[in-house]
């Protein structure tokens, strides 16, 4: 087994594009679920809104890339309002119902033939991100190595911009959550009626929370498609949402830096395990194939089995995340 290769992959993943993208997405979900208690089970829809806000502007309207970025935000705002206005006056579970349904519906609709002229259908959209890469100070095709890390210049440029965005947005979340705005959100999460009795417009705060977290989710979507260089509807499937949930709960909800920690832990674990599995000796592989049907095809599926089991067990035993205090858990008296 080539441990050197496995560790190089694992370390490079730890600060790699997936970590940035999923940490950004989880940061948005943290505002929804962690701070406000909103059950957003369709977070991937916000990523799709960001991606298509950019993609449709460039592909269909032939606007330039930078206007597209603005449209990404507009799309996420529209989506948040559509999802939030009917549901946020109701019990928490209704938002869950609508978001999980909406995210799948949006994927199916966007990839349909009817919308193909606008969204590119199942094939999607590509060649929209050139203006971004034109600004790169790195040689896009060259490999850059430092320490255990090794990235293509193209990815390195995405990483520099991605991490900058991630850290700035995390600081922003930290700031607003320390302010009275965040205090009101936490109060609404704990008990909406109490907050309303004290003059807080719970509905308005929840809408704001959905907008803010959704916009950050859209940023994650934009970073993802710019990094990949293409937008494909099927990339925005429900497993993305649940991976984001897993990351948020690993890191511990309602803490500003936990999405980054959760994303690093999740991705390095997954990449490590997958690489170890792929490098097993042929005999071991064969016996695994015989006993548990492990094949090249379903190694990737193993990931989501782990996500599902992890989410179930974490929500049951450590809803405060793996770093959270036991004290806080004991306070969960509802």
């Amino acid at each position: 087994m080539d441990w050197g290769f496995i560790f190089e992959r694992t370390f490079s993943t730890m600060i790699g594009p997936e970590v940035v993208i999923y940490a950004l997405a989880a940061l948005g979900l943290n505002i929804h679920f962690g701070y406000t208690g909103l059950l957003n089970f369709g977070h991937v829809a916000f990523m799709a809104a960001g991606a298509y806000g950019l993609g449709v502007s460039v592909y269909y309207f032939h606007w330039n890339f930078w206007i597209g970025l603005g449209m990404a935000m507009v799309y996420s705002i529209v989506l948040a309002l559509i999802l939030g206005i009917p549901t946020l006056r109701l019990r928490a579970d209704y938002l869950g119902l609508v978001t999980i349904a909406a995210s799948e519906t949006i994927r199916i609709t966007v990839r349909s033939r009817v919308f193909k002229p606008i969204t590119g259908g199942a094939e999607g959209i590509s060649e929209f991100s050139k203006p971004f890469y034109d600004l790169s100070p790195f040689d896009l095709g060259r490999f850059y190595s430092f320490g255990p890390f090794r990235y293509l210049g193209r990815d390195l440029w995405v990483l520099v911009v991605g991490w900058t965005l991630l850290i700035l947005l995390t600081l922003m979340v930290q700031q607003v959550m320390r302010a009275p705005w965040g205090r009101a959100l936490r109060a609404i999460r704990e008990d909406e009626d109490a907050a309303r009795s004290l003059g807080k417009n719970a509905y308005a705060f929840k809408i704001q929370s959905l907008l803010f977290g959704g916009a950050i989710g859209a940023v994650a979507g934009v970073v993802q498609v710019v990094q990949k260089g293409s937008i494909q509807a099927d990339g925005f499937n429900p497993t993305i949402t649940f991976t984001i949930w897993m990351i948020l709960i690993i890191g511990g909800p309602a803490r500003p830096w936990s999405p980054i920690a959760g994303s690093m832990i999740y991705w390095s674990l997954i990449i490590f395990v997958e690489n170890v599995l792929r490098q097993l000796s042929p005999q071991t592989r064969e016996s695994l194939e015989r006993t548990i049907k492990l094949s090249d095809i379903n190694i990737g599926q193993m990931r989501y089995i782990i996500v599902g089991l992890g989410l179930l067990l974490l929500a049951r035993y450590r809803p405060q995340g793996i770093f959270g205090s036991r004290e806080e858990m004991a306070l969960d008296d509802r």
Partner: peptide, 17 residues
Amino acid sequence: KALSKMTVIDNLKLGAL
């Protein structure tokens, strides 16, 4: 309806209009 995962002082500060 004490907001149990908030501190006592935060509970009070929330009340200000």
